[in-house]
């Protein structure tokens, strides 16, 4: 990124911050959210990005891109505990095609990292797409001021902060505390420290983390969703095929739309309410320009 680009970004960023995502939602003809359904995870991902105006809308030439899937568990893709590897691979390829200099895919896993990376199929797929797939490195942990309402500071993997562009690629899953885990909950995989202690105020922590990380793009993998025994599942019968991805510039709207795959109204998700109150995004989908497609 050269200085001129930086100045442009800075100016644009100022405008975006000033007028908020709602303005961005109405600006131009490009949709704010794409919901694409189809047989192939790769095809629906490609189509979703095409609907949003192509990856070039988000990625500038020479960008260092960080893609954050959910690789938390030692589970195969069929069990819907981890992000679909084809979705990740497609996004990697799209980023590189859009001129990204480097694409990294990583997550702070719960089970042994080597196992999660292998069994989820994500390491292999992302490498095949051309990404770097390192394990999280404790030397990159840095205690940072998060400026949250509840989480004032926490240890963060700086990789997620230093990347030029950040793409969040969660999978939609049942969770017994936050009810559902999608995009905002996914940021627990970008931090270190005693993550298990965040559960005492999980909804607040999720919102604080989402406010801190601010991805350029969120792609919710709902090819398979986990309907029970979350967030790990374990039997194929715990998963349900929805064959959909939702891609959006609004991280709150993605999670709101994702609730539709479950018998849960968005109002029941406490963290969405907090996020909307804090102006992190839109929970009223009526106000967004959403394009649905089937491929």
């Amino acid at each position: 990124m050269n200085r001129r680009d930086f100045m442009k970004d800075l100016a644009l960023g100022g405008v975006v911050l000033r007028f908020g995502p709602s303005l961005l939602a109405q600006a131009g003809s490009q949709p704010d959210m794409a919901m694409v359904t189809g047989e192939s995870p790769a095809a629906i991902t490609t189509a979703a990005l095409a609907v949003l105006g192509g990856m070039k809308r988000f990625i500038a030439k020479g960008d260092k891109v960080m893609i954050k899937p959910n690789i938390g568990w030692d589970r195969t893709p069929e069990l819907a505990a981890t992000t679909n590897p084809e979705v990740i691979k497609t996004l990697v390829e799209l980023c590189l095609d859009a001129g990204a200099k480097e694409v990294t895919v990583m997550d702070n896993t719960t089970n042994q990292a080597q196992r999660c990376y292998a069994r989820s199929g994500i390491a292999e797929a992302a490498k095949a797409g051309g990404a770097k797939v390192p394990f999280v490195n404790e030397y990159h942990l840095k205690k940072m001021a998060l400026g949250g309402e509840w989480l004032k500071e926490w240890e963060v993997f700086t990789d997620f902060v230093e990347a030029d562009k950040l793409i969040n690629v969660p999978i939609a899953k049942h969770h017994s505390l936050s009810r559902l885990t999608m995009g905002m909950k996914n940021w627990l995989g970008a931090i270190g420290g005693a993550r298990n202690q965040l559960h005492q105020k999980l909804d607040e922590a999720m919102v604080d983390l989402a406010a801190f990380f601010k991805p350029q793009l969120t792609v919710l993998d709902a090819y398979r969703v986990l309907t029970r025994n979350g967030p790990q599942g374990g039997r194929t019968s715990d998963a349900k095929l929805q064959k959909t991805v939702i891609a959006s510039i609004d991280p709150v709207a993605t999670d709101t739309a994702g609730a539709g795959f479950f018998d849960i109204r968005p109002e029941e998700l406490v963290y969405l309410g907090i996020a909307a109150r804090r102006g992190l995004g839109q929970t009223d989908l009526e106000k967004l320009n959403i394009e649905k497609r089937t491929v």
Binding site: T110, H175, S176, L177, N196, H199, Q200, L202, N229, G230, P231, Q232, G233, G234, R235, D238
Partner: peptide
Amino acid sequence: CIPYVLGSPCIVCEEHCPTSPKAIKL
């Protein structure tokens, strides 16, 4: 145990339980 003593939510054990159905119920 945090919920039993402090009355606050936790569920960390349940979340990590690897069996399906889970051996730890809430």
